[in-house]
Simulated assay, not measured.
Amino acid sequence: MNWIAAIIIACEISFWAVILAGLVTRYLFKKKKLGLFILALIPLIDLTLFIVTAADLYRGATATVAHSIAPLYIGISLAFGKSMIQWADERFQYYVTKEGPKPIRRTGYAHAIHSMKGSLRHVLAFAIGALMILFVVWYINTPEQTAEYQNTLKLWTLILIADIIISASYFIWPRTARKHSE
Rank of each mutant, 00 (worst) to 15 (best):
W3N: 13
W3Q: 13
I4N: 04
A6M: 14
A10Q: 06
A10C: 05
C11A: 12
E12W: 12
S14P: 04
F15H: 07
W16Q: 10
A17F: 07
V18W: 09
L20A: 14
G22N: 06
V24W: 14
Y27S: 06
L28Q: 12
L28M: 10
F29I: 14
F29W: 15
K30P: 15
K32Q: 14
K33W: 15
G35S: 08
L36S: 15
L36Y: 15
F37E: 10
F37C: 14
A40G: 13
L41S: 05
I42P: 04
P43S: 05
L44W: 06
I45P: 05
D46N: 11
D46A: 09
T48A: 15
L49R: 03
F50W: 15
I51G: 10
T53W: 13
D56S: 07
Y58K: 10
A61N: 04
T62L: 08
A63R: 02
T64K: 10
T64G: 06
V65E: 10
H67Q: 06
A70E: 12
L72N: 11
I74V: 08
G75M: 04
I76L: 15
A79Q: 06
F80C: 05
K82G: 11
W87N: 05
W87R: 02
A88M: 03
D89C: 00
D89A: 00
R91V: 03
R91L: 01
F92A: 00
Q93W: 04
Y94P: 01
Y94C: 00
Y95C: 02
T97E: 00
G100W: 00
K102H: 00
P103N: 00
P103W: 00
R106V: 11
T107L: 04
T107K: 04
H111R: 10
H111E: 12
A112F: 05
S115E: 12
L120M: 12
R121D: 02
H122M: 13
H122C: 15
L124G: 09
L124N: 08
A125K: 08
G129M: 06
A130E: 11
L131S: 13
L131K: 13
I133K: 02
L134E: 03
L134W: 13
V137A: 07
V137T: 01
V137L: 09
V137R: 11
W138S: 07
Y139F: 07
T142R: 14
P143D: 00
E144Y: 06
E144A: 08
Q145K: 06
T146F: 03
T146N: 01
T146Y: 04
A147I: 04
E148M: 11
Y149N: 02
Y149P: 01
N151S: 11
N151R: 12
T152Y: 10
T152K: 08
L153D: 03
K154W: 15
K154S: 15
T157M: 10
L158K: 10
I159T: 05
I159A: 04
L160K: 01
I164G: 03
Y170E: 04
F171Y: 02
W173M: 11
W173Y: 14
W173I: 09
P174V: 02
T176C: 13
E182L: 14
